[in-house]
Design a protein around this nucleic acid. Structure first.
Lengths: 209, 209, 209, 209
DNA sequence: AATGAATGAGACTTCATTCAT
DNA sequence: TATGAATGAAGTCTCATTCAT
């Protein structure tokens, strides 16, 4: 694998002259994200991606080792984003109740803001190559555990109802987060923030002692 | 299109002589269900299905109009099952609190009992042909509305907290139901009934006034 | 892999009506043999093979699992032929001198008669998949050993000069056999039988005590 | 086409400062030789060659006009070497019997010492461009004829058996030389010199009157 | 009721080579 | 002297479906 295949889009070399020209790797990622989200990974051909990005197949394979790699990059982008945000909320100096509420609401807003990524995530994960899947799952587990620790802390300190196993509580909340990409429409009645507040409320109410 | 393609497996014509032989359409459905669940709809070839069912391609196309039809049948099977059960719980003569709790728990157990069907449902819906997808969505909406009406009834009568829009409550719960196929393992610590009770508890607690 | 992929061309079902129609698998083998010999395995595309055979790519992959399989079949055909003939000569009731001479001459004639197969054999063996290569090598080794045993027998009984290790004698002779496909031209001065007699003479003279 | 493409590696311009650094053209030739021998010409990509040599594609195309050129260079190197050695042996002041024996043995040792080159030679010649192939064949013919003249001389003077056409004798011997790259292993029981002596013995014995 | 040979379009990927820098 | 992004053609193989039997 040639060098550029590792961190596509990392460099800042843009086409001279065209001030706002978006670099090829980014164009490819954007096209792939939209298409994967619209019609699914398997139903999107490499040909369609490169046409949408305005490049040739050779260019795609210059930057990405495989179609699978594109999917992996999309995952990585979302995972890093969400992990960073969760860490920030979890590390805050606040009562656990507030930390959990904010983290729970934030992941909803972030998911809605990146609804294409999210839809791809929940729908196409099993289409990743086994080894990449393993890697993604491992990162996902870290995220889950961080979230679970918040629940656990609240239960231990008596702030939350301890009747439900904390792992199950996390899956409960993330079920509703995953589900967002199935029903949320940007033109619907509720803003992302409103949805987030409602879902966080439901979670916190469910955890009241 | 030959006659049997309309309601495959409906008739009881089994291979003469072989008392317990499973009819071909059922064998095909079972094989397709397992394979679609394991590796996804697009990654399962018709050839693999017929091999797993022990028949030939001609036989499949004798009973089903297309690969797509198999998927549609799996959906129909699950949808009918869940709609029937929900109707029974919703029509019961009990306080709305109990009716909702039982319906919410039951759909969890039913989903776990049919985890392959459920996984296919949440993962491959967008691979159905547009018209079949429309039909499935319409049936799904009926189901959703029936469930929502229970929530609404409780909110109207003051039994449930009315702070959250009832549609959102339904999506909240069904998010966690969909998510089951991503994490539930039959060999895990919790039985289906225990998971169902926990999730119903969380829902009911979230709805406390 | 579907059934027909195992022994292509085994069945005798020919196109009704066309009395002398050659079955598809044979047509494919013949086209592949000619093309592989002419321009090498890697330089021959599947497209070219099916065009030469007058069928479609789908048909090729119906009968053969891969391009590699075609090559393997060509090998199998030649190996079986040569092994059978060597066995017949080696088992004959004759002095070892005559048995070796006849076997040595026969393999020359057979090689010339199947010069395309032979050229493919010596040129493209390393393009077989590793496991098929292993299998071919094993069969080849049996052939080599059978031939070597003849040399050894003559050396033990004093009929042949024992100065050279018998394995080396075999490689010596088969080197010249392999080389035939590099220089022999059907329109040259010597008939296959004449070449065979000369090469067998050289071998036998080299083995004189 | 830039100047250096004609005689790559001929100049002695090495990287200033790095005393023992091997010049780029040589590094490329060495890498190509190893890879072509290991996996064949067509199966070796330009990318692999430049990676193995530690340079980039641009560098390769700076020194060589094409991938094909690399192959041609390898041929040229071996051909020049062998022609020079044969000339030396053939011109020696010795009885023809000794001159032939020494030449025959020497080509065996030289071939074993350059087994990668030899393997490439006998396996990938047909992958050269037609015109380069013609050129190589012409040089090869000169070599063959020089060798044949030795045989002929011996036959004319009665030192060798004249029963076999001299061209055939040459092909006979060179068949076994070509074949070396198929079976000789450096870790085997026989040293290059021993193999050479055995093969020369066989040839000379086959030529006894 | 069922077979299985055959189709033909389209899938992902590789690669030698060029060219602006 | 050397880079490496980009090309574009060609490569092997898969697959849902049809149809004569």
């Amino acid at each position: 694998m040639a060098t550029p295949k590792t961190t596509p889009g990392g460099g800042a070399k843009e086409k001279a002259g065209a001030g706002g020209a978006v670099p090829v790797p980014q164009r490819l990622m954007a096209a792939a994200t939209r298409l994967f989200s619209e019609r699914g990974y398997d139903r999107t051909s490499v040909q369609e991606i490169v046409e949408a990005a305005g490049v040739t197949k050779g260019a795609l394979y210059h930057y990405f080792g495989s179609k699978d790699d594109l999917l992996h990059e999309i995952y990585g982008r979302l995972l890093r984003l969400q992990q960073d945000r969760l860490d920030a909320y979890a590390d805050a100096e606040q009562p656990v109740e507030q930390r959990l509420r904010r983290a729970a609401a934030d992941v909803v807003v972030t998911t809605i803001d990146n609804l294409d990524d999210a839809r791809i995530f929940f729908r196409s994960m099993h289409q990743l190559s086994p080894e990449k899947q393993k890697q993604v799952r491992a990162e996902r587990r870290l995220y889950h555990e961080r979230f679970r620790d918040l629940v656990q802390e609240g239960q231990r300190t008596g702030v939350f109802n301890a009747a439900t196993p904390p792992d199950l509580v996390v899956d409960y909340h993330f079920g509703s987060v995953h589900h967002l990409s199935s029903w949320y429409r940007p033109d619907g009645r509720l803003t992302p923030q409103q949805v987030a507040d409602h879902l966080a409320d439901l979670l916190l109410r469910a955890l009241r002692p």
